[in-house]
Every structure is written in C-alpha cells, then in structure tokens.
C-alpha cells in the first residue's frame, strides 16, 4: 500500500514542489518510457516540439511567399558577395552552410571520443564545434548588418514586397537564437569535460545530449538554406 501510493505520486508531489520547480522535478524524475536515459528522452522531446516551431515558421513563410501580391526578391542577388571583382551569388550563405555542416561533423566525432573516454580529444572537438558555431553567428551578424544597411526591415524591403523582410528576420533570427544558445551550451559542456565532471559521474552522455541539440540546429539550417535562400 505504501509502495503503490509512492508510485502514484509524481516527483513534484512527493517533494511538495509547485510551479516551475515542480515542472522541473517531474520532467527530471527517473521515469521510464523509452529505454534511454531521461536526459536524452527529454532532449528529444524538446527537439520534436522545437521542430514544430520551425515547421510553423516555414509554413508561414511558404504561405506568405506563395500568396504574395508581388514578385519575391532574388535571394541570389541580395546575398551575393563580391570576390575578385565578380558577384558570386549566395557565397556567404554557402560558406555558412559548410561551416555549420563541419561543426556537426566535429560534434559527432566528439561524442564518439567522449564515450571512448578520450577526454582530451573530446574536449578539443567540442571546443572546435563551439568555435565553428560562433563563426557562423559572426557571419550571420554581418549579413544582418548588410541587409539592415540596405534598408530591409521586418515591415519593409527595398528589393520588393515587405514579406521578404519579415520572413528573413523571423527565420534567420530564430535560427540564430538557437545557434547562440547552442554555443553557450557547448561551452558549458566543454568546461565540464575539461574539468572532469563527466569522468567523475562515469557517464559521458551529456556530450551526446548537447550533440543532439547541435545536430538539430544544423538540421533546421538545411531547410532554411534550401527553402529560403535557394528556392
């Protein structure tokens, strides 16, 4: 009888926590639904819900663009970079894409080395991932400054219809926020690897969990690159 009441109670109830503390206690209590650790299950839970956020944004962008009462600007021209006296379309965006893919690659290797217990390599690779992410962000800031300089605003756009401005700032802005959060998260994990936090816990799964988040950020960029910049 004692045991069944304990099972019926959630972590928040048994610890008498309410509000956000209660929510955190419930989400982090050691419940079993899938045979993965709770931390990993919750990261997947977050990623799927976040996929819906970006799905809604991309749906809204598609709706605004297809039903737009005017021509959509040519992204190839707007995001062209001058190199050796010639305009190369979308060069900056292509470089950003390769940087983010590379950061996903270093992240995947970092997870592997962390599980092998190779602290030094894991540390260097996660740090490299964070630095590549920061480089990506720097280029995005450059791009925002350029477009704001041209007079693009969320409500107006000198190259054509204003919907382009709102879609640009909404999609890249939200993605950039995720990258920013990801870089900070990566730096925190870097420090924990370096100071031996995971080693003491005897479990490097925290590295895989930050990896899941980081790959998701890369995944969202795949679709922004394809649907916003290329198409």
């Amino acid at each position: 009888m004692m045991e069944s009441t304990q099972i019926d109670r959630t972590a928040a109830e048994s610890m008498q926590l309410t509000g956000w503390r209660g929510a955190i206690a419930d989400l982090s209590s050691d419940g079993r639904m899938f045979k993965v650790s709770w931390g990993k299950a919750m990261m997947w839970f977050f990623i799927v819900s976040d996929a819906f956020v970006f799905g809604a944004f991309i749906a809204a962008y598609a709706a605004a663009r297809i039903a737009a009462p005017g021509a959509w600007p040519d992204t190839g021209e707007i995001f062209a970079l001058q190199l050796f006296g010639a305009d190369i379309p979308l060069l900056l965006i292509a470089i950003m894409t390769f940087i983010l893919i590379s950061s996903s690659g270093t992240m995947a290797l970092a997870v592997n080395y962390a599980y092998q217990g190779n602290k030094d390599k894991a540390y260097k690779l996660i740090l490299a991932t964070a630095l590549l992410g920061a480089t990506f962000l720097g280029m995005q800031v450059f791009e925002w400054i350029e477009l704001i300089g041209y007079g693009v605003r969320p409500w107006e756009n000198p190259f054509g219809i204003p919907q382009f401005g709102s879609a640009f700032f909404m999609l890249t802005g939200f993605h950039g926020l995720h990258v920013t959060g990801g870089v900070l998260y990566l730096l925190w994990v870097t420090r924990k690897v370096k100071t031996g936090g995971y080693e003491r816990e005897g479990n490097y799964e925290g590295v895989e969990i930050v990896g899941l988040y980081w790959h998701f950020v890369d995944l969202v960029w795949v679709f922004i690159f394809a649907f916003f910049y290329l198409i």
Binding site: A51, F52, G55, A56, I58, A59, A60, A62, A63, A64, R65, I66, A67, A68
Partner: peptide
C-alpha cells in the same frame, strides 16, 4: 509537420 507545410503551400497557391 511536412504535411502541414505542404497544405499551407497548396492553400496559399489557391489564395493567389
């Protein structure tokens, strides 16, 4: 999600 994006796109084509 993919279905939703596809439906939105089809609907806005209709609106246009």
């Amino acid at each position: 999600i993919l279905l939703m994006v596809a439906f939105f796109a089809a609907e806005s084509g209709h609106i246009a």
